Every structure is written in C-alpha cells, then in structure tokens.
Computed example of a mutant assay.
Amino acid sequence: MILGDTEIWIAVAVGALGTFMWRVLGVAVETRVRQDSPLFIWIGCVAYAMVAGLMARVLLMPGGDMAPDSMAWRFTAFLVGLAAWYWRGKSVPTGLAAGVGTYALFVATGTA
C-alpha cells in the first residue's frame, strides 16, 4: 500500500501529538515532583538497572555484528569507557565516546 501525502501528514501529526502531550504533561507536573520522593528514587533505580542490564547483555551475550568479535575487545572497551567516565567526573558522553572509540579501534585494526 502506498501512502499519499495526506496519510503521511496525519501520521506525522499523530506522532507529534503523542510526543508533545507527554512533554506538556511533564512541564505541568514538574513543580509538584520532589526529587527525593520515594517514587522518584525508585524510577531512578529502575533506569540505572535497565542500563546496567543492557551493558551486561552487550558485553556477555552480544548479537549481530558484535557476536563474532572477541570478548576481550568488548571487555577492554568497557573498562576504558568506565575509567574515562570516572576520570571525567562521571561524564556519560566522555565514557561513551571512550568506550565506543576503543571498540572501533579494535575492530578497525583487527587486533585481539
């Protein structure tokens, strides 16, 4: 089925409405949310747990193009990223760039 211009614009409008609805709701309630509330702390813990689970999955059981690569590559890149993150005051962009850059270097050079 080929969509016409009208259907595409309707899909864009519905997607934008769904996105902006949550943003407006967030702005409306942000003054009522305490960062030290038990619910907010729980949400933060769940978010950290999800990130940790994803990192463990990528490190230990990768899929796709990472599957045939050496675990030593993945583990070393993880440690370099972790060290950079810690060294730069827990800066996520720095840790991410260091880890991805290290892994990319391993893949590009083909070293083990």
Score class of each variant (00 low, 15 high):
residue 104 A to E: 14
residue 23 R to F: 10
residue 21 M to F: 12
residue 79 L to V: 11
residue 18 G to W: 02
residue 105 L to K: 08
residue 10 I to S: 01
residue 9 W to C: 13
residue 24 V to S: 03
residue 80 V to Y: 01
residue 93 P to D: 03
residue 10 I to K: 08
residue 48 Y to W: 08
residue 7 E to S: 10
residue 26 G to R: 02
residue 95 G to E: 13
residue 83 A to D: 15
residue 5 D to Y: 00
residue 75 F to C: 02
residue 95 G to I: 13
residue 36 D to E: 11
residue 52 A to S: 04
residue 53 G to N: 03
residue 24 V to W: 07
residue 59 L to Y: 02
residue 63 G to R: 00
residue 51 V to W: 04
residue 21 M to Y: 11
residue 98 A to E: 11
residue 97 A to W: 01
residue 77 A to K: 02
residue 29 V to A: 08
residue 60 L to C: 05
residue 77 A to G: 04
residue 55 M to Q: 08
residue 38 P to C: 02
residue 54 L to W: 00
residue 69 D to I: 05
residue 76 T to Q: 04
residue 78 F to R: 09
residue 22 W to Y: 11
residue 75 F to K: 00
residue 54 L to T: 05
residue 43 I to R: 02
residue 16 A to Y: 07
residue 89 G to H: 10
residue 23 R to P: 12
residue 63 G to Q: 01
residue 108 A to L: 15
residue 73 W to E: 09
residue 53 G to W: 03
residue 93 P to Y: 00
residue 74 R to P: 14
residue 46 V to C: 05
residue 23 R to Y: 13
residue 104 A to W: 15
residue 103 Y to K: 10
residue 47 A to L: 12
residue 6 T to C: 03
residue 103 Y to M: 10
residue 91 S to C: 09
residue 21 M to K: 02
residue 51 V to L: 05
residue 110 G to C: 06
residue 32 R to E: 12
residue 49 A to R: 06
residue 13 A to C: 10
residue 9 W to G: 08
residue 31 T to W: 02
residue 112 A to R: 09
residue 92 V to Q: 12
residue 18 G to N: 09
residue 30 E to P: 15
residue 79 L to G: 10
residue 32 R to W: 03
residue 94 T to D: 13
residue 57 R to Q: 07
residue 11 A to T: 09
residue 31 T to K: 02
residue 107 V to H: 03
residue 55 M to L: 12
residue 106 F to K: 04
residue 92 V to C: 05
residue 30 E to Q: 06
residue 68 P to L: 05
residue 18 G to L: 06
residue 105 L to G: 11
residue 21 M to P: 07
residue 23 R to W: 08
residue 96 L to R: 09
residue 31 T to R: 03
residue 45 C to W: 15
residue 84 A to P: 15
residue 17 L to Y: 06
residue 46 V to N: 06
residue 106 F to P: 03
residue 111 T to K: 05
residue 84 A to R: 11
residue 53 G to D: 05
residue 74 R to A: 01
residue 94 T to I: 12
residue 68 P to Y: 00
residue 107 V to L: 13
residue 91 S to L: 05
residue 30 E to R: 07
residue 75 F to E: 01
residue 39 L to R: 07
residue 64 G to F: 00
residue 83 A to P: 15
residue 82 L to C: 13
residue 91 S to W: 14
residue 70 S to Y: 09
residue 92 V to S: 08
residue 57 R to D: 08
residue 38 P to S: 07
residue 104 A to T: 10
residue 17 L to C: 08
residue 16 A to G: 07
residue 34 R to I: 01
residue 11 A to L: 15
residue 31 T to V: 00
residue 73 W to I: 02
residue 30 E to A: 02
residue 77 A to D: 04
residue 12 V to D: 07
residue 7 E to A: 10
residue 86 Y to K: 14
residue 105 L to C: 12
residue 74 R to W: 01
residue 75 F to I: 12
residue 70 S to C: 04
residue 18 G to P: 07
residue 30 E to C: 05
residue 60 L to G: 03
residue 1 M to Q: 14
residue 112 A to D: 15
residue 65 D to W: 00
residue 28 A to C: 09
residue 94 T to F: 14
residue 46 V to T: 02
residue 97 A to S: 11
residue 6 T to Q: 12
residue 26 G to W: 04
residue 75 F to V: 13
residue 86 Y to S: 15
residue 28 A to D: 14
residue 39 L to W: 06
residue 84 A to L: 12
residue 50 M to W: 06
residue 33 V to L: 12
residue 75 F to W: 10
residue 97 A to K: 10
residue 92 V to G: 05
residue 16 A to M: 13
